[in-house]
């Protein structure tokens, strides 16, 4: 199951990179200068939106990977069952 291994590797890479990212924003926070002349924009904090956006992208990609993995597992299970059925014949 080389594919499975690759997928596990991929997943860990992703998780690693997200956690690496998670440590970055606070450092950058000090540089943040709120702008007063934003026209017709209420002053909502930006960070939650940014985090939500990044998080969604990761969750979506992970979820899709997971669906591929699940579908692949189902196919492999079916194949094994089928192979067993044919060999028993």
């Amino acid at each position: 199951m080389s594919l499975c291994r690759i997928m596990i590797a991929l997943t860990s890479w992703f998780l690693l990179s997200t956690s690496a990212f998670a440590t970055q924003p606070p450092a950058a926070q000090s540089e943040y200068v709120p702008l007063k002349d934003l026209p017709a924009t209420e002053n909502v904090p930006a960070a939650p939106f940014l985090i939500a956006a990044y998080a969604f992208v990761w969750i979506a990609a992970m979820f899709y990977l997971w669906t591929i993995w699940r579908r692949l597992n189902r196919v492999e299970t079916d194949m094994r069952a089928l192979a067993q059925k044919t060999s028993r014949r």
Binding site: A28, Y32, V33, L35, A47, F49, Y54
Partner: peptide, 8 residues
């Protein structure tokens, strides 16, 4: 003009 949010 947009600050942090632009990083999206």
């Amino acid at each position: 003009t947009m600050g942090l949010i632009q990083k999206i």
